[in-house]
Amino acid sequence: MDLKSTLLVTGGSACSFKLLNTIVRFLPTPEPAHKKAWKWRNIITSLVHSSLTGAWAVLCLYHQPHMLEDLISSHSLFSHRLVAVSTGYFINDFLDLALNQSIRQSWEVLLHHSTVISCFSLAVKSRLYLGLAVVSLLMEINSVFLHIRQLLLLSGQKNRPGTEITAPHPSVTYSVTSWLNLGTFLVFRVCTTGWMIHWLATHSELVPRYVLMMGTVGLSLISTMNMVLCYRLLRADILTSTDNTGKNH
């Protein structure tokens, strides 16, 4: 794709996700989520992006396994469009967060999005490092379950009916989602990030200094956010459940 086509795909993606967010506004919203209607719409939009790009990244690597051997120069129209579409989503989500949440609430996500937009824009414009961008989008597979978990919390479906006050017990749906979230977190976030860090360290001589700096900063940020997120998930879904079980006995 030339630059004009790339901009059209990226801009079209941003507009499409904005349109999706608007359509969700007119769909039924669970009563517990009414007070956080904006967040409900934002997470559903994010869930669609994660489902789309996570599956797309797997297809890219399945049909083009050589990308894993050459993350710098190997690319295709299929992978190029994937990264362009994802860039459009992150631009839309950045604006959505900036306009609807305070900086205090959203600064971590805004910093993450800024880093991703910078790295993906470089890959899309130069047609280099697309393999690295595609590998990073494997993390969206975990984001699918992360977003479903958030939707269950917003809709008040975390606990089994009738157990909320006396002795809260997670519902089957929430428990399954929670374990899938933690399992895919380990595989698609921790392992993927570790593999990317190892690749960047062993191929640093092939990467320009400014790209190496962008990659190092980006992966350091993602690694830090992953550790914080993992702690929060374990505290909320594992440690709390263990404490409640102990108290009930």
Rank of each mutant, 00 (worst) to 15 (best):
I91E: 07
E31W: 08
H249Y: 14
V116K: 02
L219I: 08
I103T: 10
F188R: 07
L180W: 10
N21Q: 12
N42Q: 11
I222M: 13
D237C: 07
H203L: 02
T87K: 04
L132R: 12
N248G: 00
T245H: 07
H169M: 11
G183R: 05
W179Y: 15
T202C: 08
V58L: 08
S73H: 10
R160L: 15
T224Q: 10
T6V: 02
P65I: 01
L99Y: 14
N248W: 10
P65W: 01
N100S: 11
H249W: 14
A133W: 03
S204H: 07
K35C: 09
A57L: 02
L128W: 03
R235H: 14
G246K: 07
K158N: 09
C15Y: 09
V190Y: 06
L97G: 08
S178M: 15
T166F: 05
T193F: 02
Y231M: 12
H80F: 14
I117C: 06
L47M: 04
L239I: 08
L61W: 01
F185P: 04
I91T: 06
S5N: 06
Y89G: 04
G218K: 04
H147M: 02
P30E: 13
S143R: 03
W38H: 14
R81H: 09
L206T: 08
L151G: 01
G246N: 13
L68A: 13
Y129G: 04
A14R: 03
F17G: 02
H80Y: 12
L82A: 06
H66M: 15
G54M: 11
H75Y: 09
V135N: 01
D243I: 04
N21F: 09
N100W: 11
T173D: 10
L219S: 11
N42I: 04
L180C: 14
T166D: 14
V134N: 03
F188Q: 11
T115W: 10
L154V: 11
T166C: 07
L186W: 13
L97C: 07
Y89L: 07
A201P: 00
H112F: 05
L219K: 01
A133H: 04
L95S: 07
G11E: 06
A236P: 00
T53S: 14
L52I: 12
L138P: 10
C230W: 10
Y62K: 03
G218V: 09
L239M: 09
I91F: 15
L99T: 12
V190L: 14
L239T: 03
G12K: 08
M227F: 12
G246M: 13
E140T: 01
P30T: 00
S46Q: 05
S171A: 12
E69L: 12
L154I: 12
H75G: 02
R41G: 04
D93G: 05
L146S: 15
G11H: 05
S118N: 05
G218R: 02
S76T: 13
E69G: 15
Y62A: 02
N100L: 01
S143P: 01
H112C: 05
S50I: 13
R81G: 15
F188N: 11
A167Q: 10
A14Y: 09
Y231C: 05
V9D: 04
H75T: 05
P168Q: 13
A33H: 06
S171K: 06
N244L: 15
K36N: 12
I148T: 05
Q150N: 06
L153N: 01
I165K: 15
